[in-house]
C-alpha cells in the first residue's frame, strides 16, 4: 500500500539507507580506510582489506539491517497495542527480559549460540506479558508516563538480576559481557541465519494482521464494530514482538530507544496510520541502527563504543523531548 503520503518519505529513506549501507562497508575502526575499502569494492587485489570488508563489515551491516527492522517494527506494534506513544521494547523491559533469559541459560551451562535464540524469544515473551498486564491495570494504560516508569522499574529489576547472575558465574560473565550492552561488532552471518526464520515468520504473520491492527487506533469497540477481535489481535501482536525483539536481542544484545525513536520519526513523516508507519519503519530502523553503528566505530577509534550505549545517548534526549512537549502526542 504505497500511497501518496508514503512515497516521498519512503524514497528518501531508501536512498539514505543505501548510502548508509555502503558507508558501513567502507568506514571502520581499524587501519583499512575508506579508500582501500572502496578499491576492494572494485575488485582490487588486497586480501587484508577484502577480509575486513566482506567478512567483518558486511555481516555486521546485514545484522544491522535485520536488527533495525525488527526493533523499529516492534516499537510501532507495542505503541499500537498499548495505545501509548512511549511504549518501546527497550524501555518496557522486553529486551531486558530476553537478556535475562539468555543469562540464565548461560549460567546453567548451555553455550552461547545453541539455545540463545529460542531463550531470548521466550524471555521477550515473558517481558511482553508483564508489560501488557501493566497496561491493563486501571489508570496505568491511559498514562504514557506511568507506563514508562513501570517499564523502567521492571527493566532495572531484570538488569539487576542479570548482573547478579554474571557476578556469580565467571564463565558466563566472560561470554556475555560484550553482548549485554548491545553491539553489532564481530557478528557473523551464521548468527543472522539462526534468527532469520523466526523473524521472517513474524513478518509474514504481521503482513496478514496489519489492517486489523491499524483499527485498534480507533478504540476497542470501534475495532470490534469493524469485525475484528481486539483481544486476539493484541495477543498475536505480542507474539510477533517477542519473536522480533528476542531475535534481535539474541544477535545484538539489548538495544534501547530504536523502537521509540523510529516510529516517532515515521509518524511525523507520514501521519498516524499504522500501516504507513510500519512500512516506513522498515528503512528507517536499519538507517538509525547503521548510522549509530558507524558512529560507534569512529568516535573512539581505533577501539569501538558499544552500539547500545550510543543509541541510548541519541535516544534519551528524544524521549525527554517527547515527554516535555506541551501536549504528549496521543495515539488515541
Amino acid at each position: 500500500m504505497i500511497d501518496e503520503k508514503l512515497r516521498r518519505p519512503m524514497q528518501a529513506a531508501l536512498m539514505l539507507l543505501l548510502v548508509t549501507c555502503v558507508a558501513s562497508l567502507l568506514i571502520g575502526a581499524g587501519d583499512v580506510g575508506v579508500w582501500r575499502s572502496l578499491m576492494v569494492l572494485f575488485r582490487a587485489e588486497d586480501a587484508d582489506a577484502a577480509f575486513t570488508v566482506w567478512s567483518l563489515r558486511l555481516p555486521r551491516t546485514l545484522v544491522g539491517l535485520a536488527v533495525g527492522m525488527a526493533l523499529a517494527i516492534s516499537g510501532a506494534l507495542l505503541q499500537a497495542i498499548s495505545r501509548n506513544p512511549l511504549a518501546e521494547p527497550g524501555l518496557l523491559g522486553v529486551s531486558a527480559g530476553s537478556a535475562l533469559a539468555v543469562a540464565i541459560m548461560l549460567s546453567l551451562g548451555a553455550s552461547m549460540m545453541e539455545l540463545r535464540v529460542g531463550m531470548a524469544q521466550l524471555g521477550a515473551l515473558l517481558g511482553c506479558a508483564c508489560v501488557l498486564s501493566v497496561t491493563r491495570l486501571r489508570g496505568v494504560g491511559n498514562d504514557p508516563i506511568r507506563l514508562v516508569l513501570a517499564g523502567a522499574a521492571f527493566s532495572s529489576l531484570l538488569a539487576a538480576l542479570t548482573s547478579l547472575l554474571l557476578l556469580m558465574d565467571q564463565r558466563a560473565a566472560d561470554e556475555i559481557r560484550f553482548w549485554v550492552v548491545g553491539s553489532l561488532a564481530g557478528r557473523r552471518v551464521d548468527d543472522l541465519l539462526a534468527v532469520l526464520p523466526s523473524m521472517a515468520l513474524a513478518g509474514l504473520v504481521l503482513l496478514a494482521l496489519v489492517r486489523p491492527l491499524s483499527s485498534l487506533a480507533l478504540g476497542e469497540r470501534a475495532s470490534a464494530g469493524l469485525g475484528h477481535h481486539p483481544g486476539r489481535l493484541r495477543l498475536l501482536a505480542v507474539i510477533i514482538v517477542a519473536l522480533l525483539v528476542g531475535g534481535a536481542t539474541a544477535i545484538a544484545g539489548p538495544i534501547a530507544f530504536v523502537g521509540l525513536v523510529v516510529p516517532f520519526l515515521a509518524r511525523s513523516l507520514c501521519g498516524p496510520d499504522l500501516r504507513r508507519t510500519l512500512w516506513l519503519c522498515l528503512p528507517l530502523g536499519p538507517l538509525l541502527v547503521l548510522l549509530a553503528d558507524i558512529l560507534s566505530r569512529c568516535l573512539v577509534a581505533p577501539s569501538e563504543l558499544p552500539l547500545g550505549v550510543l543509541t541510548a545517548i541519541c535516544g534519551a534526549p528524544v524521549l525527554i523531548a517527547v515527554v516535555r512537549a506541551r501536549r504528549l502526542p496521543t495515539l488515541s
Partner: peptide, 28 residues
Amino acid sequence: LLPQEALAPEGLTVTDLIRFGRQPHQAW
C-alpha cells in the same frame, strides 16, 4: 457501530477515518 468513546489518533484525516469503514469488505 459508532461507539460513544470514538477515539482517533492525532493527525488522522477525514478520508483516513472513512477508509477504515471498508475493512469488513477487504480480505487481508
